[in-house]
Amino acid sequence: MEPFTYSRASQTRDAIAAAASASTAQQGAEVRFVAGGTTLIDLMKLNVERPQQVVDINHLPLSEVETLADGRLKIGALVRNSDLAHHPVVQRDYAVLSEALLAGASAQLRNMASTGGNLLQRTRCNYFRDADMPCNKREPGSGCSAIKGANRNLAILGTSDHCIATNPSDMNVALAALEAVIVVQGTQGERQVPIDAFFLLPGTTPQHETVLQPGDLITHVLLPAPVKGARSHYLKLRDRASYEFALASAAVVFATDAGKISHVRIALGGVGTKPWRSSDAEKALQGHSPTPENFAAAAAVALRDAQPQSENAFKVDLAQRCLTQALATVANV
């Protein structure tokens, strides 16, 4: 770990001002916000994150969950994963989010981890986490150790020759299926970014994971008003029953009208370089009958472009089973 200065922000604008001096808000940021610290402190100990300044945002007034007049749900960036998962409105109207949160990490970690922090959770790629090994995400241009190394847990969708790291978050997958909007405060004021636009594909610049710029602070996450009659579900598959990142997961939001699928949103986890929304799979189902055959066909569409690595071809099959089962569960077929 490198020496750093620590300060506690009491107002949002102070936090933003402190972070605005950094050259980037991505890998290599000189200033980092800390909330739960479950990712940042871990990576600082591994010398993967080396901020010169850490700004503690835990005292900012961003810990509320609030239903807006238009029916949307406004979640403060500092709401802890465990509180969000057990929030009655979330449990009632956004079950997929509650289930995803509770499928992640351990109770102790969920008690610390924040909503904003979880959005920025870093990959568990072993080579990203080992500061001695080449990694384009950590040290741009150094090469990808995972493509010819241990890649069983890594991505098969959205990869590039430069990076195959998986976005590890469960929460993000649910937020993608819920079409969440990320509220960001920056030096130029507030802006709202749809979650699918918030995350970037690795391409040739895997060190850039989000659209965040220096000084940007995630203040809230907005969830659209619940779709009438919709059910939602998160299914996570992994080797052991608890405390493990997904090999494959699926978040689905689903409603039918007169026997046809009237609303469906699909996102996959454990397989993508970002929380993997599959609009093509949604299109394949929209207006069709909720049958196991149609679900399996949609799942095949969702994985159509998969590019497996040496150790993770099984994920193509597993992710399809996961999505098919998740759809069958919400459709109750």
């Binding site: 568990r124 072993n126 150790s145 052991r240 029953a241």
Partner: peptide, 25 residues
């Protein structure tokens, strides 16, 4: 335990990546 063929490092040298039984299992 998996060793990387390039440098001999145990790749999964932590309690998240070295998968052991949890209470839930």
């Amino acid at each position: 335990t998996s060793y990387d063929a390039r440098n001999g490092m145990a790749i999964n040298s932590n309690l998240a990546d070295y998968v052991m039984v949890t209470h839930a299992d």
